[in-house]
């Protein structure tokens, strides 16, 4: 492992980009805003932030980032999508579907809990292999994950429903770990990025 700080990209089209950059800084990683394919080189990991999935999915096409991000992930690159980012990682979305990257074998239902007045904070259910029980999960106009494929591991649930899943080095998270001080989800990503490719 290089002694220098790992560089983690944050897709910089729209959303709470700065919150992720702050979280990375607190974990000792160097954040980089990703707006062009060239920004993907040399990354330890990549984050697709929360924001508006419609806006970001259109931005991915306009910035010609769809293929490069798919190639990055297919080459074993670690990647985390939070909320809108989780929708973009999914194999498909429903409820006003948006085009997705198809990188995590799960289906995302957009705004599955309702409008903003149905947003909520809840602790993750106890148990689970990742030890995330009790983690404070912030859901804002959040999606739900359905029908995970065989290769998908469920890392955290709230009320029995999956809210954080993992497929190889790819993490789809329906809540916003970047809005709390508990950075365990970001730490999982950095750990995955530090490992040799498995997938």
């Amino acid at each position: 492992m290089p002694a220098s700080r790992p560089i983690v990209g944050v897709l910089g089209i729209q959303g709470d980009i700065e919150k992720h950059l702050n979280a990375l800084d607190r974990l000792g990683a160097k954040g980089r805003r990703v707006l062009a394919p060239g920004d993907l080189s040399g990354l330890t990991a990549l984050i697709l932030p929360g924001g508006e999935s419609t806006t970001i999915s259109k931005g991915l096409v306009r910035h010609e980032l769809v293929k490069p991000i798919q190639q990055y992930a297919e080459g074993g690159g670690a990647i985390l999508g939070t909320c809108a980012g989780a929708i973009l990682l999914s194999r498909a979305s429903r409820n006003h579907p948006v085009p997705t990257l198809g990188l995590v074998d799960v289906e995302a239902e957009r705004n599955a809990y309702g409008t903003q007045t149905d947003s909520f904070v809840a602790p993750a259910d106890p148990g689970g292999a990742a030890g995330l029980g009790g983690l404070e999960c912030v859901f804002i106009r959040a999606p739900r994950l359905h029908a995970p494929g065989e290769g998908v591991e469920i890392l955290a649930c709230v009320d029995g429903a999956p809210v954080l899943v993992r497929e190889g080095n790819r993490f789809a998270c329906t809540f916003h770990p970047e809005l709390t001080d508990d950075l365990r989800v970001h730490a999982l990503l950095l750990e995955a990025g530090g490992r040799p490719c498995e997938s």
Binding site: G12, I13, Q14, G15, D16, I17, E18, K19, G50, G51, E52, T55, C83, A84, Q116, T117, D118, S119, F120, V121, V138, I140, R141, H176, L179
Partner: peptide
């Protein structure tokens, strides 16, 4: 949703937009 952090959270999601 009456929690202030959730209200500010939605505003955070609109940043850069």
């Amino acid at each position: 949703a009456d929690a202030f952090e959730l209200k500010v959270g939605l505003a955070e999601m609109m940043k850069n937009g």
